[in-house]
Amino acid sequence: MNDALDTAVYAARRDRLRERLAAAGHEALLVSHAANRFYLSGFELHDPQCNETAGYLCVAANGRDALFTDARYRDAALRLWPARDLCIYGAGRFASIADFLKDRGIARLGFEPTALSFDTHAKLAEHIDLFPVPQAVEPLRLIKDADEIARMRRSAVVNHAVMARLPEVLVPGRTEAQAAWEIEKLFRELGASELAFSSIVGVDANAALPHAIPGETVIRDECLVLVDVGGRRDDYCSDQTRTVWVGNNPPERFVTLLDRVKRAQTAVLDRLRPGLSFREAYGLAREVFVREGVAERFTHSLGHGIGLETHEGPSLNPTSEGVLEPGMVVTVEPGLYYPEWGGARWEHMALITADGCETL
């Protein structure tokens, strides 16, 4: 991992959020979503697991922000956060949080409704007045700054290097699961700190499962393999998909399938630009498939935003609201799927520029 961002960068991000809170008349927001917490503070990108938390960040309209965590993270927190603004809670977690905030003049606390569990909300609400503040931080994360873009470029470079070595990974006799393990090792050897998500490796009919779990299906000579993988470098994710034929004699149906998918992706990349709506971007790919009479085989969105998380805003789907803006990074991954024999997807990450897009 590269050096952490200067604490001033995180402070500036909190100031932007603070402006949004003040404009809405909110006293404070409790940030519980791990990626949002990290984006605003640099503290712990991951929670230990889905039923545990590394802590909470409170961004206050009065400027008295606070970080809450337990004793396991004390030293890590103090590397980023002044002791006067740090609350180390114990068994009485929720009473400690409420008391700490009330001492700072905060009586009502907003929360992220998609990130705070029902149980946590109920326990905290016993001690302080809570109200939902949806989508407070996520709009700030849509536009990547220059440092974020540089990190994402480096992350994409690792992914391209992994994809370049697929011929030595996808060898007859190796199972999907074994290929996925070789891919994971490559990511780490090439500079990733971890996978961005569990690798997808699907052989033949398994490739028709968009989120196929690598299993014991064996790669054979003359077979189709879909690989969708990503890594994390310098905190930021990559995500790419390739579909290949192992062997020298791909059947016509595979050649046609892959050609359609690639042409759909090209149709999108050629026209991605600021001002294009999310649903229009999706429509560019679908138009290609409609002309070919296979649109019913395109069963998912065109793509998604990517950054600190593999899947973040915006979503490029037929019902999504909003338009592309410079600094957004999205995936473009049209696919076609035939459960009887296989599927194909081809994916690039695209940075929206001032007048178009750049493939990362």
Rank of each mutant, 00 (worst) to 15 (best):
S96D: 15
V31N: 00
W245D: 08
P132L: 13
L226H: 08
A177G: 05
R291N: 08
T353I: 12
L130A: 00
S320F: 00
R74L: 10
D99I: 07
C223V: 07
E321N: 03
G247S: 09
L142A: 12
P82K: 04
P318D: 14
L186Q: 09
Y282Q: 02
E287M: 15
L351P: 00
I97K: 05
H33Y: 10
A12T: 15
T319W: 14
D228Y: 04
G55P: 06
E194I: 02
R84M: 13
D228Q: 09
G110L: 01
S117G: 10
L284G: 04
Q240D: 02
E148D: 15
Y338L: 02
R72V: 02
E138K: 02
L21C: 00
Q178W: 09
V330C: 10
D129G: 11
A205W: 09
A4Q: 12
T217S: 14
K262W: 11
P326K: 07
P139A: 07
G305T: 04
C58G: 04
V290K: 10
P314C: 12
A295Y: 01
N62Y: 09
S198F: 07
T266G: 03
A24R: 13
R79N: 15
M1I: 05
D15A: 10
L45V: 05
E126S: 11
W181H: 07
I219E: 00
W81Y: 09
G191M: 03
P339W: 08
E194K: 13
H127D: 12
P318Q: 14
D259F: 01
A161Q: 08
A54E: 11
W181D: 05
C58F: 10
S238N: 05
H311L: 08
T7Q: 15
R297K: 13
P274D: 14
D65S: 11
D103L: 03
A264W: 09
S301A: 12
A285R: 00
E27T: 01
